[in-house]
Simulated scan of single mutants.
Amino acid sequence: MGRSIPNPIWCQIWKLACPAKVKFFIWRTLHGTLPCRVTLANRHMKVSPSCPTCSRGLEDTKHMLFLCSKAKEVWKRLGMDVIIDKVCEVDLAGEAILEYLLLLPDQDLSIMGYQNEREMIAISAWYLWWKR
C-alpha cells in the first residue's frame, strides 16, 4: 500500500500562527460545512437565505467572505481587493477562493507588505463570519 499525499492546503492551515478557532473555521469552510443561510434554507430550515449584513445577496460562502459590502470593505482596507476581485471573476465557489488565497506563493503574498499574510487572510475571513 502506498502512502497518500496530503493536500497542501491542510499543511498550510495547521501551521498558521493564529488561534485554533480560526484554523477550525478555515477547515470547516474548506469542507463546505459552514451553516451559511443559503445552506440552512436548502436544508428546509425556516431562515431567510439573504445576507444579514447587507441584505443585497444570498448568504453563501462566496458572498459572505468576498462579495458582501462589509467583506469588500475589509479586503480593500487590507489592500487585497484587486486580487480578490480578479479571483471572483473566475466564478469559483467561496471555498475555492479562500483555498486559492491561502495557497498563493510567498512572492505573490509579499507584495501586500504584511509579515504574516496567510494569518491575516485566515483571521479576516473568520472575522467576517463572526461579525455577521
Rank of each mutant, 00 (worst) to 15 (best):
Asp81His: 13
His31Leu: 15
His44Trp: 14
Val22Phe: 00
Arg43Tyr: 04
Gly113Arg: 12
Ser69Cys: 11
Ile123Asn: 06
Gly113Gln: 10
Met120Asn: 10
Lys21Trp: 07
Asp81Glu: 14
Pro6Phe: 01
Ile26Ser: 00
Asn7Phe: 06
Pro6Arg: 11
Glu73Phe: 14
Gln115Gly: 08
Cys54Asn: 13
Leu104Ser: 02
Trp129Gln: 11
Trp130Tyr: 15
Met80Asn: 07
Ser69Arg: 12
Ala96Ser: 09
His44Met: 13
Thr53Tyr: 00
Cys51Leu: 07
Leu101Ala: 08
Gly57Gln: 09
Lys72Leu: 11
Lys70Thr: 15
Tyr114Trp: 05
Ile13Arg: 06
Cys54Gly: 12
Met45Arg: 12
Val22Gly: 00
Lys72Pro: 09
Cys68Asn: 08
Cys88Ala: 11
Leu98Asn: 03
Leu16Glu: 03
Leu103Val: 05
Pro19Glu: 05
Leu34Arg: 06
Asn7His: 13
Arg118Ile: 08
Val22Met: 01
Asp91Lys: 14
Ile97Phe: 01
Leu78Gly: 08
Gly2Phe: 06
Ile111His: 03
Leu102Ser: 01
Cys54Glu: 07
Met120Val: 15
Ile121Met: 00
Glu119Thr: 13
Lys46Ser: 13
Ala71Phe: 03
Asp85Lys: 12
Leu40Ser: 06
Asp106His: 11
Leu103Arg: 03
Ala17Asp: 10
Trp75Asn: 12
Leu40Ala: 06
Met1Ala: 12
Trp10Tyr: 04
Gly79Lys: 07
Ile97Gly: 01
Thr53Gln: 07
Lys70Met: 12
Leu67Gln: 15
Phe66Ser: 02
Ser124Phe: 10
Ser124Trp: 09
Arg118His: 04
Leu67Met: 14
Asp81Gly: 11
Tyr127Met: 14
Ser50Cys: 14
Lys23Tyr: 01
Gly79Met: 05
Gln107Ser: 13
Asp108Tyr: 03
Pro35Lys: 07
Lys46Gly: 07
Ile111Asp: 01
Trp126Glu: 08
Gln12Asn: 09
Asp91Tyr: 05
Lys131Ile: 15
Ser69Gln: 14
Cys11Asp: 07
Arg37Gly: 03
Ile5Gly: 02
His44Leu: 14
Phe24Arg: 11
Trp75Glu: 10
His63Ala: 12
Trp14Val: 11
Leu128Met: 09
Val87Asn: 00
Glu117Asn: 13
Pro19Thr: 05
Leu16Cys: 04
Gly32Ala: 02
Lys46Pro: 03
Val87His: 00
Ser48Ala: 06
Leu104Ala: 02
Met45Lys: 10
Met120Pro: 03
Met120Ile: 15
Pro35Tyr: 00
Val82Arg: 14
Ala93Tyr: 13
Asp106Pro: 01
Asp91Cys: 10
Ser124Lys: 13
Ser4Asn: 12
